[in-house]
């Protein structure tokens, strides 16, 4: 563990996918899904990765836990470089990280009981030798995610559980090897509105109790508020803004973040009496994206420079970074 409490550090991390257009063509293109991401996450803290579909947030998540191999940059975990680790090192890293995905219904083998599905990672990683100890561990995580009485749930099959309950099992499976980092990729977007907050609250409690670090991937800015310390706003493969969640929501700086906030409605009957001022257009394709600011084609405040050069990340106020030329100090 590096001395300053950082669990995870990303330095200019890149993940590009190679595509060929037409099978006779030898020309190679890249989809620059994650194109230079830098941030660090302390032990026991949560960061929200916010972005629309195609912004690269899922790819970033999968690259961090090394389901993808990065094309550039570095990933440090507990101070150790894990960017290109292989074999046993990678296996260790897999144990230290857990993933909860969007679709709880597709996450489990239908012919396995919940018990069996939870025991599986213990078997694969040879984590616990005896059968009794494994059962103990399975029951303990079921307790952690509040699927109680645990004996009732352990021997059920996936189809017998609701989406919310299955997502708790997914969380249980993600923490059963006692990892340090959890990636939760849109963990509630397929759940009923009335149970979403329940799952997010559960994740938050586990984060605090087990001193987990959590990367919460979402398209819904409103859910970041009570569930993360930090927020990263992604657009077209770039991190446009990063700061504490409070700061991003209270004092958004990037024109894209501002547009997101304006566009996200709170329930309020006065909304029907006004139009929203949001930029038209759509995100750029990530094959040959604009070499300047990727938001410039839609940005209401764009000026000359925005169409010519990609802005670096400026630290507008202490700890609040924004990738936008408006914040360049002259």
């Amino acid at each position: 563990m590096s001395s300053d409490g950082k669990l995870l550090e990303l330095e200019d991390l890149k993940k590009w996918f190679e595509i060929r257009r037409g099978f006779l063509s030898s020309k190679v293109y890249y989809v620059k899904a994650v194109d230079g991401v830098t941030f660090s996450l302390d032990e026991g803290k949560a960061v929200s990765l916010v972005g629309e579909s195609g912004s690269g947030k899922t790819t970033l998540g999968k690259t961090i836990i090394r389901l993808y191999e990065p094309n550039g940059g570095r990933i440090l975990f507990q101070g150790k470089d894990v960017t290109h680790i292989k074999a046993n090192d990678l296996k260790w890293y897999r144990r230290m990280t857990g993933l909860v995905q969007q679709d709880p219904f597709g996450a489990f083998a239908s012919h396995f009981t919940i018990f069996r599905s939870l025991e599986e990672p213990l078997l694969i990683h040879n984590a616990v030798e005896s059968k009794e100890k494994r059962a103990e561990r399975v029951f303990k995580v079921l307790e952690e995610v509040r699927l109680t009485p645990v004996e009732d749930f352990a021997y059920k099959y996936p189809h017998m559980l609701s989406g919310g309950q299955l997502q708790r099992v997914a969380i249980a499976r993600a923490i059963i090897l006692e990892p340090k980092l959890i990636i939760a990729d849109e963990p509630v977007s397929m759940l009923d509105a009335s149970v979403r907050i329940e799952i997010l609250t559960l994740l938050r409690r586990l984060q605090e109790r087990l001193r987990l670090s959590v990367i919460y991937i979402t398209h819904d800015l409103a859910t970041t508020r009570f569930f993360s310390e930090w927020a990263l706003i992604m657009y077209a493969g770039h991190v446009m803004e990063k700061a504490s969640t409070q700061e991003v929501l209270r004092n958004p700086l990037h024109p894209y973040t501002k547009a997101l906030l304006t566009a996200t409605p709170d329930p309020n009957p006065e909304n029907r009496n006004r139009f929203k001022e949001v930029p038209p257009g759509e995100p750029p394709a990530l094959v040959n994206p604009p070499i300047c600011c990727r938001f410039s084609p839609r940005c209401p405040l764009a000026f000359d420079k925005c169409f010519k050069e990609e802005p670096p990340e400026f630290e507008a106020t202490s700890g609040h970074w924004v990738k936008c030329w408006l914040y360049e100090r002259s």
Partner: peptide, 11 residues
């Protein structure tokens, strides 16, 4: 309950 379950940005 449903209304209270909606996270808000402005409150």
């Amino acid at each position: 309950g449903l209304l209270l379950s909606v996270p808000t940005l402005r409150t």
